[in-house]
Nucleic acid binder design. Structure first.
Lengths: 100, 100
DNA sequence: ACATTATATCGATATTTCGCGATATAGTGA
DNA sequence: TCACTATATCGCGAAATATCGATATAATGT
């Protein structure tokens, strides 16, 4: 866990909002039947909520992934992103230890 | 508490380090006798530890203060900065609520 | 009033980040 | 192979941030 990367990734309100949205799958349109067993949300759905360009959202998700805060799973053409709850907790613990 | 300002202020390793140093007054040279009753550390001492220019450190402290994470108290020519423990806790709670 | 000290602010330049459109990559299916 | 879809990456200009030296402000002491 690189605390610098994580804080940078969180230093943007839309990226934080994406993390919040990802807490609840029902914030997004229903998954296609063939993806019903996959956990996570595809980039296009996140883009639709964020109202930013595809390239920007893809870059955002890479930042969050490189910070460890989300995990990515590729299924065919789709990449599904989901929260990495352990890493998120670890981050909060680290920041708390550091600055408390 | 503006969470955006606070995260921005913390999005820099030296500013975080300053917050850590401020936990313990003994990280800095002893206070002058006439300041023995004042809590907080003057800019010059912080600058010495941070090894950055006076203007940079002054700007850093303003960022931390505007984020609410530290408090400033002017005594004569000196400005003494100290951690705002309540605000720091509030920040951690807010971030935790938001992203947990 | 003047010199000195501590801090804050200004102005400049350098670096980083933002967000986009265009393009590349990769998978799907006719 | 060819079109189509989903995502990733590239290259750009704009905006924000970093850091400095110079200067302004304010307090102190002679």
């Amino acid at each position: 866990m690189d605390i610098d990367k994580a804080i940078s990734a969180l230093n943007n309100p839309v990226r934080r909002q994406i993390l919040i949205w990802l807490k609840d799958r029902s914030n997004f349109p229903p998954a296609l039947p063939e993806h019903s067993e996959v956990s996570g949300v595809c980039v296009a759905y996140i883009q639709e909520k964020a109202e930013l360009s595809q390239s920007t959202v893809s870059t955002y998700m890479k930042l969050l992934k490189d910070a460890g805060l989300v995990e990515a799973e590729r299924h065919g053409q789709w990449t599904f992103y989901r929260r990495n709850e352990k890493a998120i907790q670890q981050f909060l613990n680290l920041v708390g230890q550091e600055i408390s």
